[in-house]
Nucleic acid binder design. Structure first.
Lengths: 199, 199
DNA sequence: ACCTGAACACCGTTCAAGT
DNA sequence: ACCTGAACACCGTTCAAGT
């Protein structure tokens, strides 16, 4: 089979999602693709470039539609949903894209800024809000990715109740990682707060 | 000089902060400490355990005071400040601690939960708020750490204005990474929102 | 008890040789 | 043009040997 760049990146995405960014290596990718190690370098100049390619591929997978009609809250919500969709489909790659801050994050930022300015926020305020929003999404991703390998015997599950009474009591709430709900909650916070502060 | 565990971890912290978590290796740490590679393994069972030790050390470096008198907003603000202080002093290690979610994060979580429940929030609501808060702090850390190595020629600085008009126009606001201001802004958002929703 | 050299199985990348 | 083997400088960890 032809060893195109697309195929390499697709394999990399699958590998990363399965075993984490740490686990990926050029050698492993090569054996996975059934080719020699060095063949990869004909399509990708380095491991770093490969990861950039993965980030771009992941982020380009969602339409960042600008919706002129909707309210700014609805638009932010839609954008959050789009980001959430990426994070849900490829959490580890999304985290990778976020931490590499290449060009792949420009389009979503652009759309959000347009949305918020269209809603009457000043430029600097719009930047602030986008940043708070992006920051939160990033944190969500870290949580989701970071929790995954733990799987059951996390620090929370084996804590001493006497030492941490609150954590022990709320153990079940803490353990349930309801990312969808968290996002909804944060979007409500943001919507309420930005509405209240818009003069 | 004696090669105690504390000294090893201190050196690791310095190395991580200087060159990033990726750059750290047992061999490099050994040469930095002026000892043989394998000597390290007498105090630290593995590289992973070393990183856990770094995380614990960093997080234990701040008092997580419970302030019974203050308002919940002020208490959250104080906790945010304490976290911010850690992140400011050792951003890369703080990021490490956050992404490793060992026991080092239990104490701050415990204090926050106590604070919020003391302010009248239900257990599940308190968990939600703590999570939103922690998530945001995490995102802030990722930003700070991720931006550091970029240093000037980031994707934002070389974008095409025609393609991303908003980003181009707000370039200066975007580039100024005012983490202090961002945190203040987010704390205000959170304070306002949680006040509004407390019945 | 504490240290450590040799060895093993990895890793990314360069370079020169193949077709 | 596309592929790839050999080689280089790394990496974490095990094990057995030193003191």
């Amino acid at each position: 089979m032809q060893l195109a760049r697309k195929r390499i990146i697709a394999a990399a995405i699958e590998l990363i999602e399965a075993d984490g960014v740490e686990a990926i290596s050029m050698q492993r990718l090569a054996t996975e693709l059934g080719c020699g190690l060095m063949s990869l370098y004909n399509y990708v100049p380095s491991r770093n470039a490969l990861l950039d390619g993965v980030a771009d591929e992941i982020m380009s997978g969602v339409a960042w539609t600008y919706m002129p009609g909707a309210s700014s809250q609805d638009q932010m919500r839609a954008l959050g949903g789009a980001l959430r969709q990426i994070a849900s489909a490829h959490p580890r790659c999304a985290m990778l894209a976020a931490s590499r801050r290449g060009g792949s994050l420009l389009r979503p930022a652009e759309t959000m800024l347009a949305t918020l300015q269209g809603a009457g926020f000043s430029g600097p305020d719009a930047v602030r809000i986008v940043r708070a929003f992006a920051t939160y999404i990033l944190g969500l991703l870290v949580c989701e990715v970071g929790v995954a390998p733990d799987d059951g015997d996390s620090a929370v599950s084996r804590l001493r109740p006497a030492q941490f009474p609150q954590l022990a009591e709320l153990r079940l709430d803490l353990r349930a990682s309801d990312v969808e709900g968290d996002l909804e909650f944060a979007l409500d916070l943001l919507a309420r707060a930005t509405t209240a502060s818009a003069s």
